Computed example of a mutant assay.
Amino acid sequence: MNTTTPRIAVIGAGPGGLTCARILQRHHIAVTVYDHEAGPHVRNQGGTLDLHEDNGQIALREAGLLDEFSRLSRPEGQEMRQLATDGTTLFHHTPAEGELFKPEIDRGVLRDLLLNSLRPGTVRWGHTLTSVEGRGARPRQLRFADGTAVEADLVIGADGAWSKVRRAVSPAVPRYTGISFLEARFHDVERRHPEIAALVGQGSAAAADGERGLFAQRNSGGHIRVYVIQRVAQDWITAAGLTLQDTDGIRALLVERFRDWSPALRRLLTDNDGRYVDRPINALPVPHTWDPDPAVTLLGDAAHLMPPLGVGVNLAMLDAAELALAVVHSDSVQDAVRTYEKTMVPRSHEIQKLLDDGAATLISAELPDFGADAHS
């Protein structure tokens, strides 16, 4: 920036927040990232994701990390199979040699890539934000659960679906979409679950009947994650008289609900290692907007939480790149926020509208349009 360097605080050390910090540092602008977790590896970061050439990879190029991403990613993860409920194959895409439109990378690997690119001490772990005070003024004061407080000239909310920063500019809260994911995990699949490994291949496999679906995805290190997708009430497990710890009871319920599916597909319900993980799908109202604030802005799920249809992290990283570059090339924080939101808000509105009720497509019995470049 052409004036005194502002104090910039990013809340959330996910892909979006870390990408923003990395690009700012590449342009010699100081930034601090605050995250509620005690450290970078206190929990599993989740499954795999595909970074698209037209958004996520653009952000990594601006971050100077595209070559390293290419080394770490799994292009073979672009393989995709659509199955009928009887187990027959309806569609099978095998990526061509050199196909790099959306290679897969594990979330944890991507996070480590971004974390390792930052200057030591950039991320302050164990800082749970409780409030952003001083609406409409600069600087803003950030208060944390441990009683500490800091001032910032720009507060960037990259803190996900249940963003605390969002509360400073918007009353909106995520709402349940009516679609729920139940995650099942499989480990050492080539040795312990060879049939499932063969069914899923190196990428993903999906099947649906209009009311329920299965989506299985290969992760690195011999792991597969399966998402059981259902149109159910949010409390469907307790309504059945079960708890999430009652693995056998949930398995029996799923077997009954998927009783007409092939035995090969039902293994994705029953042969998992360990407990299930309940993941109800929430989304922000469409469109989500807020009155501009000269010192606070949002990116990623904090700004435009949508159903998980392959765009969330990609958009968060593109948001992050555009915001960081707006800060670099603007004369003031307020100008940077205005420039960034002028592009980000309309784009996110358009995609929100396209994906509104998009979670329902995950259980549709109709074969998706995979694009003209896909092949059987």
Score class of each variant (00 low, 15 high):
residue 319 D to V: 09
residue 126 G to K: 10
residue 271 D to F: 03
residue 196 I to E: 07
residue 328 V to N: 04
residue 227 Y to A: 00
residue 70 S to G: 03
residue 83 L to I: 07
residue 32 T to V: 15
residue 345 V to H: 08
residue 52 H to Y: 02
residue 145 A to N: 08
residue 19 T to N: 02
residue 136 G to M: 05
residue 295 A to R: 01
residue 227 Y to W: 02
residue 208 A to H: 01
residue 30 A to R: 15
residue 146 D to A: 07
residue 130 T to A: 12
residue 176 Y to I: 03
residue 195 E to L: 12
residue 292 P to D: 14
residue 138 R to H: 03
residue 314 N to A: 12
residue 270 T to H: 05
residue 334 Q to F: 01
residue 56 G to W: 02
residue 273 D to A: 12
residue 38 A to V: 09
residue 225 R to Q: 08
residue 307 P to Q: 12
residue 98 G to C: 04
residue 245 Q to V: 05
residue 83 L to K: 08
residue 145 A to D: 14
residue 23 I to V: 11
residue 117 S to M: 08
residue 218 R to V: 04
residue 212 R to F: 08
residue 3 T to A: 15
residue 170 S to N: 11
residue 249 G to W: 01
residue 164 K to I: 04
residue 146 D to Y: 00
residue 49 L to Q: 10
residue 151 E to C: 12
residue 173 V to N: 02
residue 195 E to N: 14
residue 101 F to G: 00
residue 236 W to E: 08
residue 76 E to H: 03
residue 108 G to E: 10
residue 173 V to K: 05
residue 349 H to A: 13
residue 182 L to I: 01
residue 246 D to R: 11
residue 193 H to G: 04
residue 86 D to T: 03
residue 336 A to Y: 11
residue 187 H to D: 10
residue 206 A to V: 11
residue 238 T to V: 13
residue 328 V to D: 03
residue 44 N to E: 04
residue 195 E to S: 14
residue 264 A to L: 14
residue 326 A to W: 10
residue 274 G to D: 04
residue 57 Q to L: 14
residue 154 L to V: 10
residue 285 P to N: 13
residue 359 A to R: 00
residue 128 T to Q: 03
residue 362 L to I: 04
residue 138 R to G: 07
residue 80 M to Y: 06
residue 250 I to L: 11
residue 72 L to R: 15
residue 90 L to Y: 03
residue 276 Y to W: 01
residue 295 A to T: 06
residue 212 R to P: 02
residue 231 R to E: 00
residue 31 V to M: 05
residue 168 A to Y: 04
residue 96 A to D: 10
residue 270 T to F: 09
residue 59 A to W: 11
residue 60 L to C: 08
residue 163 S to V: 06
residue 233 A to I: 00
residue 261 W to V: 01
residue 135 R to K: 11
residue 334 Q to E: 14
residue 42 V to R: 04
residue 297 T to W: 09
residue 336 A to H: 14
residue 256 E to F: 06
residue 106 D to T: 08
residue 60 L to I: 13
residue 286 V to D: 15
residue 275 R to V: 04
residue 192 R to I: 06
residue 273 D to C: 12
residue 247 T to Y: 05
residue 193 H to Q: 02
residue 358 G to P: 08
residue 125 W to I: 12
residue 262 S to P: 15
residue 268 L to C: 13
residue 295 A to E: 00
residue 258 F to Q: 12
residue 332 S to R: 03
residue 188 D to E: 14
residue 207 A to M: 11
residue 222 G to A: 10
residue 14 G to C: 02
residue 239 A to T: 06
residue 104 E to M: 10
residue 357 D to Q: 15
residue 193 H to A: 01
residue 50 D to Q: 13
residue 350 E to H: 09
residue 257 R to V: 00
residue 277 V to Y: 05
residue 265 L to I: 06
residue 336 A to F: 12
residue 99 E to T: 01
residue 236 W to H: 15
residue 267 R to C: 01
residue 121 G to P: 13
residue 33 V to D: 09
residue 197 A to Q: 10
residue 99 E to W: 08
residue 332 S to G: 07
residue 200 V to S: 04
residue 45 Q to V: 00
residue 96 A to T: 03
residue 376 S to P: 06
residue 149 A to V: 11
residue 216 A to M: 10
